[in-house]
Amino acid sequence: MADVLVLENVYKSFGKRMVIDNVSLSVKEGEVFGFLGPNGAGKTTTIKMILGLLSIDSGRITIMGHDIEKGFEKAMKYISGIVENPDMYGYLSGHDNLLIHARACGAPRERIDEVVRIVGMQKRIKDKFKSYSLGMKQRIGVAQALLHNPKIMILDEPTNGLDPAGIKEVRDLLKYLAHTEGISVFVSSHILKEMQEMCDTVCIINNGRILRTGRVDELTHDAARGLYRYRLRPMDKAVALLRENAADRISEIGEDYVDLHVSEDEIEILNRRLVENGITIYGMSPVETSLEQIFMEITGGGNVVD
């Protein structure tokens, strides 16, 4: 499969602060590409560079083989996106907003009705944009991004502010677009769980550096080594024992609990050992795996936002 979007050794700094530090990645045709990172990781900055809103300090970005700096007009024909919020003209109707974008992108007028149908906004399309709920605005944003049949859509946290039903809808829509319509979707988020269910490939970024890129199945295999919260008695004895024998598995020690990384096969052995050593397990529950915790693992702890 061909590469739709390629970033090669991209750098960007704001003043003295290096915000994007040697980022390279490529997005293939028809895949959902997740761009993961905590707040301030550099997701929005990268997206703005891809869309030509920010200049690139050094490196190269190409869309369908067109360099975005040298062939901006050609490159932009294949790409669309929503950056941060779906900001549009509040005093205009959804339809007028779409009309404006359609004209600017050279999309035919009939396409407006099509994309409105795709995002399911037929009923409210004549209303003023400012009267929409956040979810409706996101949908109009996606509709706008679909107008000129792009090869790749860039969405910056499209599920931001949506309720669970809304998140699921967006997720299904993006999957449909990528897998049925063949549009590559580049989507940023800081919620791993969300990404797991939607993306084919993910790329994890922190402090402007790419930490890991890979197929979701590979990454989730690592993540499958789950995190469990043990409630043990007596605490001090248990902690001493764990420190001695399984120090690398300890994630966090609380007042009355210990968080441990263990795979499913290991649970049985660990539990047996604890009981053998006279420790009571009076509680044990899986801890939600968040991106930040994966980070700690990848980066060896430390503050994620700095």
Partner: peptide, 11 residues
Amino acid sequence: GGTIKLLLITP
């Protein structure tokens, strides 16, 4: 209004 972003990502 933030609309500058949409305005400038057109070809």
